[in-house]
C-alpha cells in the first residue's frame, strides 16, 4: 500500500511524452519554494491509501495513449518498496498488452538509489532535483542538514545510465531565500565531465503559485534571469 495524493492520467510535464503521473504523499524536506506544500505531510486526510492493483487500474486506462508512468511526490522514494512492486506490475502490463511502458521517478535525491537495486532494475530513469550545490545554501532552502546524498545520487545514476534529466528550480536573485544557479550549473557540468556522460538539464522558473511561507509573495523569476541561466547552461554544454 502507498499513500497517494493524486493521479493525473495525462501529463506532459513529468518526463518525455504523455505519461500517467502518480503523486505520493509525504516529503522528508521542506523546500521554501515548494508549490505542493500539501504533499509534504506524511499523513494527510486528502491522500488515499492505494494498493498496487488500484494504481494499476488507473495506469491501464492510459493504454495505448501513454508512454509510461512517472511517480512523483512529495518524495516518492520514501515509499520505495511500493515503487518496486508498482514498477514490476507496470512491466507485467507492458508484456501483457504489447504496449511498451517506461517507469520514471521524480525525486529530490535525498534517499540513496544505490540502496535499492531491485527497484532500479525496473526503473527506466530518474528525474533528479539538484536544488543547490553549496551545502549551506541547500540547508537554508530545504531545512535538510546537507546534500551529500543528492550529489552521490547524481554520480551513481549517471554511472548506471539511470539519470533522465536534472532539474533546477531557479529563484530570483532578489528573493529572501535564493540559490546560486550558476554555481550549481558549473558543478553539475564538472560531474558530467568526470563521468564522460551527460543528460539534459532543465531549468524551471520559480512561480509563486501554491507556495506558502517566506516566498509566497515573491514574483516569478524574470525572463532576463532565466535567459542568463539558459545561456550559461548552453555554454557549459548542458542542454
Amino acid at each position: 500500500m502507498a499513500l497517494v495524493r493524486k493521479i493525473i492520467p495525462q501529463s506532459t510535464v513529468d518526463g518525455p511524452g504523455n505519461r500517467t503521473a502518480v503523486f505520493l504523499q509525504g516529503c522528508n524536506i521542506r523546500c521554501a519554494y515548494c508549490h505542493n506544500p500539501e504533499t509534504q505531510a506524511i499523513h494527510d486526510a486528502e491522500a488515499r491509501e492505494m494498493s498496487v492493483e488500484e494504481v494499476m487500474a488507473e495506469v491501464r486506462k492510459g493504454i495505448p495513449f501513454i508512454r509510461g508512468i512517472t511517480v512523483s511526490g512529495g518524495e516518492c522514494m520514501l515509499q520505495a518498496a511500493f515503487l518496486t512492486e508498482l514498477f514490476a506490475a507496470v512491466r507485467g502490463l507492458s508484456v501483457e498488452t504489447g504496449h511498451p511502458l517506461t517507469c520514471l521517478i521524480d525525486s529530490n535525491g535525498t534517499i540513496p538509489f544505490a540502496h535499492h537495486p531491485e527497484l532500479m532494475a525496473y526503473c527506466d530513469g530518474v528525474m533528479l532535483d539538484v536544488k543547490a550545490w553549496d551545502a549551506d545554501v541547500y540547508h537554508r532552502l530545504t531545512l535538510s542538514p546537507d546534500n551529500e546524498v543528492v550529489k552521490e545520487n547524481l554520480r551513481w545514476l549517471l554511472q548506471h545510465d539511470k539519470l533522465t534529466e536534472v532539474r533546477i528550480v531557479c529563484l530570483p536573485q532578489q528573493a529572501v531565500v535564493t540559490t546560486d544557479v550558476a554555481d550549481n550549473l558549473r558543478h553539475i557540468a564538472d560531474v558530467f565531465a568526470e563521468a564522460g556522460k551527460r543528460v539534459p538539464v532543465r531549468l524551471l522558473r520559480f512561480r509563486p503559485y501554491g507556495v506558502v511561507g517566506e516566498l509566497a509573495d515573491t514574483p516569478s523569476t524574470s525572463d532576463t534571469e532565466m535567459s542568463d541561466y539558459a545561456s550559461l547552461a548552453q555554454s557549459l554544454g548542458l542542454f
Binding site: Q10, S11, G17, N18, F65
Partner: peptide, 8 residues
Amino acid sequence: NPAAVLDI
C-alpha cells in the same frame, strides 16, 4: 511537449 500529444 508535442511528443505527448503525438503519443495520444
